[in-house]
Simulated assay, not measured.
Amino acid sequence: MMKKISIILSLVTSVMALQGQNTVSEVETYGTVDQAVGNIAFTNDGELVYSHHPFFSPEIRVVKFDKKANTTSPFPNLEWNTPRETDDNYLSNVLGIRNDENGVIWMIDMAQRNNVTPKIVGWNTKTNKLERIYYLPESSVPSISQPNDMVVDTKHGFFIIADEGIGNGGDGSKAAFIIVDMKTGKTRRVLEGTRTTKPENTPTVINGKHLAVNGKDLLIGNDGITADANFEYIYYGSLNGPKIYRIKTLDLVNEDFTDADLDIKIETYSDKPNNGGMSIDNEGNLYLTALETKSVAVVLAKDRSVKTMVQDKNMVWPDGVSYNHVDGYMYVSAAQVNRGAPFNEGKSVATKPFYIFRFKPVVKGVSFR
Rank of each mutant, 00 (worst) to 15 (best):
G277A: 08
L130P: 06
K64Y: 01
Y135W: 03
N114D: 13
P353K: 09
F257K: 15
M1K: 11
G276D: 15
D171P: 07
T187L: 05
G346S: 11
V190H: 06
G215P: 10
M110N: 10
I356E: 01
W80Y: 15
D228P: 11
P142Q: 09
I108E: 05
L48M: 15
N207W: 00
V321M: 07
V363N: 12
W123V: 01
A260N: 12
S14I: 11
Q336F: 03
D149N: 14
S238I: 06
N344S: 13
L18H: 15
I220W: 03
W317H: 11
T184W: 05
F56S: 08
N324Q: 12
R195V: 09
G284V: 02
K4S: 14
K3R: 14
Q336Y: 06
F359A: 04
G169P: 14
I244G: 02
K364I: 05
T351S: 10
T127H: 05
K4R: 15
A335S: 15
N201M: 10
D149F: 03
N314E: 08
Q35D: 07
G96F: 03
F359C: 04
T23R: 06
Y287L: 01
P74A: 07
E292T: 14
I178M: 09
V33Q: 02
D181W: 03
I8K: 09
I244K: 03
S14K: 11
W317R: 02
K243C: 00
